Simulated scan of single mutants.
Amino acid sequence: MKIVNIEVGGVRRVGLLDGECVVDVLAVHEAQPLLPTALLPALGSTVTVIQHWDALRPLFEQAIERSRTNPAGRIRTADARMVAPMVPSTILCSGSNYLSHNQEKANADTSGKEPEFFVKTGDCVVGSGEPIVLDRVLTSKLDGEVELAVVIGKPGRHIPVDRALDHVFGYTIVNDVTARDRQVRRRPDGSYWYELGRGKFFDTAAPLGPCIATRDDIPDPQNIMVRSWVNGDLRQISSTSQMIWTVAQLVHFFSINVTLRPGMVIITGTPSGTAWSCDEELGGKWAGTDGMVRATGYLKDGDRIVCEVEGIGRLENPVVEHAA
């Protein structure tokens, strides 16, 4: 099942993808009562849906079936006002999780040895179709990274690897937008160090969507393709089988630091093909394969970046320069 958010009258509502249509669950219920009164508040956000999923799932399946015969609540996707399918409180981020990406960049001391741990929040989130803001006061080297994102469904701390996927609700896509000239700093001796705060955390730094695919839609998260394009040029292509740390290992890793809670998101790293790989000034080394087109520069005003994860869909965002 694929969960989306739509905007109706300025209010976010939970919807479900069904082919080329979105099913507005509340509208289906209003046309013909479906949900028990006690469960109606759970439709208030995707996070509360996740918290009540065991009870809601069969009712959501009924809503989809009902919408196929009674059009109330059924909207063509092209006509729906789609927004990010959730705004997580916390996005736990794993860097340097593909060997191919490590080969194309200046690495930190921990690269390839343990996940590079940084955090984004819901303040960075925008949905598919919304602009990524290029703020020249912040950066002149804005880059994008396609990443499989893991949506937590069940709370836990110190979660064993062999039970980690039991805590996963589903998966979405996050574009880990990065200000490279804030992230990567060069010492006088020619070596590099990272500043992941300003390089990773800023407005529109986490486009997320277009939907959340529930875990049963993606039975093996280590066997799906990820790709990105800029203005139609293939920039990144890889399989999640190339991750250094699996989804289960990352869930375990982050749960050592914090209690994972429903609605938290973990992003799992990006493969080679970033614009950084073509920036020798910041230690980049091009390592593209499989028809990838080498970047000629960083993201600029008017560009369009598309991130695709197999089984989930495409997250598409224009780049718009902010006038200070």
Rank of each mutant, 00 (worst) to 15 (best):
V119G: 07
D135F: 05
E61S: 00
Q62T: 11
R68L: 00
V126H: 04
S96G: 11
D109V: 14
S191Y: 07
C93M: 12
L142H: 00
K141A: 08
A108K: 05
A63V: 06
I132G: 07
H158A: 13
H101P: 05
N175T: 04
F169E: 10
F118E: 01
R180W: 05
H158W: 09
Y194F: 08
T69Y: 12
R157H: 05
D203Y: 11
D166V: 12
S111V: 05
D79C: 13
V146L: 09
T77Y: 13
P188K: 06
M86N: 03
E104N: 10
A108M: 13
V119M: 14
V146A: 10
S67Y: 03
G197K: 01
C124P: 01
R187V: 02
E130G: 12
P88Y: 05
G95A: 10
P155E: 05
H158L: 10
R163L: 04
G129D: 09
E61N: 10
S128A: 13
Q62P: 05
V83G: 00
P155A: 09
V168T: 13
Y192H: 12
D79I: 12
T178Y: 06
Q62A: 11
G156A: 08
E65L: 08
R163S: 14
R182N: 05
Y98V: 07
D162M: 11
P88I: 04
C93W: 01
D176W: 08
L134C: 12
G112L: 08
D109C: 08
V126S: 03
R74T: 02
L165T: 06
V150C: 13
E116A: 14
R74D: 03
N102D: 14
A206H: 01
E61I: 11
T121D: 09
D162S: 11
I132H: 01
T90N: 13
V119N: 06
D123K: 15
D123L: 13
F118N: 01
G190V: 00
Q103H: 14
S140G: 14
F118Y: 15
D109L: 15
L92G: 06
G95H: 05
Y192I: 02
R186K: 14
D203G: 10
S67M: 02
L165E: 03
E116N: 08
R157K: 15
K200S: 00
K105G: 12
D203P: 11
Y98T: 08
S89T: 14
L92E: 02
E114P: 07
I75C: 02
L99E: 15
H167K: 10
A206S: 15
P131L: 07
K141M: 10
A80E: 02
Q103I: 12
G156R: 02
T121R: 03
G129F: 00
D143M: 06
S94C: 07
A206K: 03
P115S: 07
E195V: 15
N107R: 03
K120A: 02
V126M: 01
S67Q: 03
C124Q: 02
V150A: 08
G170M: 02
T77D: 09
D176P: 14
M86C: 09
V177I: 13
A164L: 00
P155G: 08
R74V: 13
I173D: 02
D176K: 04
D79K: 15
R66V: 07
R186V: 14
